[in-house]
């Protein structure tokens, strides 16, 4: 027989779980709906009443995106779209996004880690204010930077190349990565390095064998930030790139809206494929992310 107290506790727990499930469902609903739509045949997408779980499961949208096969909306050649379709470019855009994300993240992390090490370990004029000034850039909307950066890319003859995006993303992710790494490096006791120096390590060995492994949670947190910013950016991709071949996913996926016909199945499949890499990355690294941001928050 349950006591009054136990009953009260059970009711409270039940209420808590129901509320949590509801909130989770609301938050996840767009993603669930996108996944569901991407797995439906075209006939079912606009069915009334709408179905959350597809009655007929199909992977034709994914197949079309991943193979780049021309899709026909209706039977008969007269309805086939003229010219290239966005689906044909999907894998290319995906690879472009991976390249610019990986490239800009790598450059940001290498520079910010070295800069943070220098700022926390060597004495020179201005070293204490640099990290704070570096954050000033985030106080203004990034659209302010886009056009000056674009003009610079024109000068450097880098427009419409992936390099323009890589450098553009470095310019927006580097300051925060540096600040985060700086806060993290400050929390690493200098005695550890001194112990290694006395043990016989050179400055470079100390950095590689002692500092870097200790700073790993910070590096991971900064990398995730840089990757999210680069992967999700729309503005730079829209302004810097004008050929279909060099587009990234975010801008490319918008092309699914253009024209008279929107293929929702394809669009949703593209959205799901776009989300998957970041979701996997997040799940794999979230433990480090919390540790990294935590350290930064306390010490920064």
């Amino acid at each position: 027989m349950l006591t009054r107290k136990q009953l009260w506790r059970a009711a409270r727990d039940a209420l808590l779980y129901v509320s949590l499930c509801t909130v989770t469902f609301i938050v996840c609903f767009p993603l669930i709906w996108a996944l569901s739509t991407s797995l439906k045949p075209k006939s079912e997408i606009f069915a009334t009443p709408p179905t959350l779980v597809p009655r007929t499961l199909t992977f034709e949208n994914y197949e079309a995106l991943l193979t780049g096969r021309q899709q026909y909306y209706h039977s008969g050649p007269q309805t086939a779209p003229s010219g290239p379709t966005p689906a044909q470019f999907f894998t290319r855009w995906f690879v472009n996004s991976v390249i610019v994300t990986a490239g800009s993240t790598l450059i940001s992390i290498v520079i910010s880690t070295l800069a943070a090490y220098s700022l926390t370990r060597f004495r020179y004029w201005g070293r204490s204010v640099v990290p704070y000034f570096s954050l000033l850039g985030y106080m203004v909307p990034s659209i302010i930077f886009v056009f000056p950066l674009f003009l610079m890319m024109v000068r450097l003859e880098l427009t419409d190349s992936l390099w323009s995006l890589i450098f553009g993303y470095v310019s927006i992710t580097l300051p925060f990565c540096m600040w985060l790494m700086w806060a993290f490096m400050r929390s690493i006791p200098i005695e550890i390095e001194e112990a290694a120096l006395i043990d016989g390590a050179s400055r470079y060995q100390v950095f590689r064998q002692v500092v870097l492994p200790t700073a790993l949670p910070g590096i991971i947190a900064a990398s995730i930030f840089a990757m999210i910013v680069s992967w999700n950016d729309y503005l730079f991709g829209r302004v810097f790139i004008n050929s279909l071949d060099n587009l990234t996913l975010t801008v490319g996926v918008m092309l699914f809206f253009e024209g008279t016909h929107v293929d929702w199945g394809l669009l949703m499949a593209a959205s799901v494929l776009m989300t998957v890499p970041m979701a996997i990355l997040f799940m794999a690294l979230q433990r480090h992310l919390v540790a990294g941001f935590g350290a930064g928050a306390v010490k920064g």
Binding site: P189, E191, E194, A195
Partner: peptide, 11 residues
């Protein structure tokens, strides 16, 4: 040298 904080390599 033995440090006050021990300074062991944490990883």
């Amino acid at each position: 040298m033995v440090f006050q904080s021990y300074a062991l390599y944490p990883q």
